[in-house]
Design a protein around this nucleic acid. Structure first.
Lengths: 229, 229
DNA sequence: GAACTATAGTGTACAAACGACACTTTGTCA
DNA sequence: TGACAAAGTGTCGTTTGTACACTATAGTTC
């Protein structure tokens, strides 16, 4: 059943850059294409926007369908719309970036995408279309964002140690941080709830566990607080 | 001549929030709609994206055609795509924000839009569609941006005094700034070229004129310099 | 159970940036 | 020439950033 319009319309898609942290590596979720163009090449998960869903909903649906991923954080990144970004047709794509908690994700069970895989961002292959550019933009955004907003907790388990959190920041920012200064700063923000619990099964002194406290975050946000790191 | 596709496609438009500074007021350019829906209501300039132009080009073209405006700065803001934002059809719009130099713009000659007007942002009317939301987002972006990037010079004449620049920042940020601290900071950034020229035709001591120096800006940008204000 | 090992956890001192604050200078106009 | 209007300028106390090294603790090994 064809659809007819008075004026030509570009095709509208969403593509999502999904980040996760895995043992000190920042990883990105990619899908191997099954058809031309760029058959066999890796690409960002994504697809067409339906008429009965918003862009955000479309991004979430694609992730669910195409990669079986449940996102912890999703935000619109940028819309890419140069004329020649797809060789077949004029395609405009609204790119999103998402964060997922890999530690609760490893099985990757309910995915109909056996052709999905996590790549370390540092050595991801060359991607289809202009997806390299999109990935680069997403990485820049993540690095910028992490400095002034407590994004990033989404990438960790619910309960975590300060050392884990520091490693996370070091991985994203690609530089080492000073332990004492990091703790001073992050604790002064008063975003973390100190738990009465410590790490288990480690072969050395166990560290205290913390949890991100959304209530405190909201309170501070309302006051126009600045979370620069 | 109709255009037919296998799957339904949303309509894709660009809308632009154009800011200018005029005597201490931050102004925004609006267009009065000539047809339903929202006939007679004010709206952001914008229109359909053509298949042979990029999104950026579309934004620029619409401004030229619809408002006869030459922009000094243009950047993509956000893409709005909820299902019901246009009562007629599914319309997704890529919003831009633009800065123009009003002092070189007053005549607004070559515009085929006699129904265009500048409104102080503070008392703009309720807009058509979800354009109020878009305007709000653009204002937030401008206020955030001005703090860490030397955007804003675009809103002034080529040669300006430090007092003019301070007033500009005060207008955008909606709060007063300390004269000595402002000068210290802005001059330390080493972005401005001090000219051998002073103001003319003022009824008091004339101020020195400065000019934004894009070369210095580029040099500092390459060094990863931070322009926080 | 003593020694070892690996990581947790903690404080200080110096430097830089920020923010508050008031008077003198200069040119115009009446 | 005196009044006015805006230009232009410096200091000091506070806060923030940053560099840096040792002690405490739990588990493992011998």
């Amino acid at each position: 059943m064809p659809f007819t319009y008075e004026y030509p319309r570009p095709c509208l898609t969403v593509d999502v850059v999904v980040f996760g942290i895995d043992e000190g590596d920042l990883k990105v979720l990619l899908i191997q294409r099954g058809q031309a163009p760029f058959e066999g090449r890796w690409a960002l998960p994504g697809g067409f926007v339906r008429l009965d869903e918003s862009l955000d909903q479309g991004a979430e649906r694609e992730l669910r369908e195409e990669a079986g991923v449940k996102v912890a954080y999703l935000e619109q990144l940028y819309t890419f719309g140069t004329v020649d970004r797809d060789p077949r047709d004029r395609v405009v794509t609204v790119a999103y970036f998402a964060l997922v908690n890999l530690s609760e994700h490893r099985p990757q069970a309910a995915s109909d995408a056996r052709n999905a895989a996590w790549f370390a961002v540092a050595d991801a292959p060359t991607l289809a279309f202009d997806h390299d550019k999109i990935l680069e933009a997403a990485l820049a955004r993540l690095q910028a964002k992490v400095r002034y907003q407590p994004v990033g907790f989404e990438l960790l388990p619910e309960k975590f140690t300060l050392t884990q959190l520091q490693k996370l920041y070091e991985t994203i920012l690609e530089r080492p941080l000073d332990k004492r200064n990091f703790r001073k700063k992050i604790l002064k923000m008063d975003l973390l709830k100190e738990l009465d619990e410590i790490e288990k099964d480690v072969a050395h002194r166990a560290a205290r566990l913390y949890r991100f406290d959304p209530k405190r975050y909201e309170r501070l946000t309302r006051k126009g607080f600045n979370f620069e790191l």
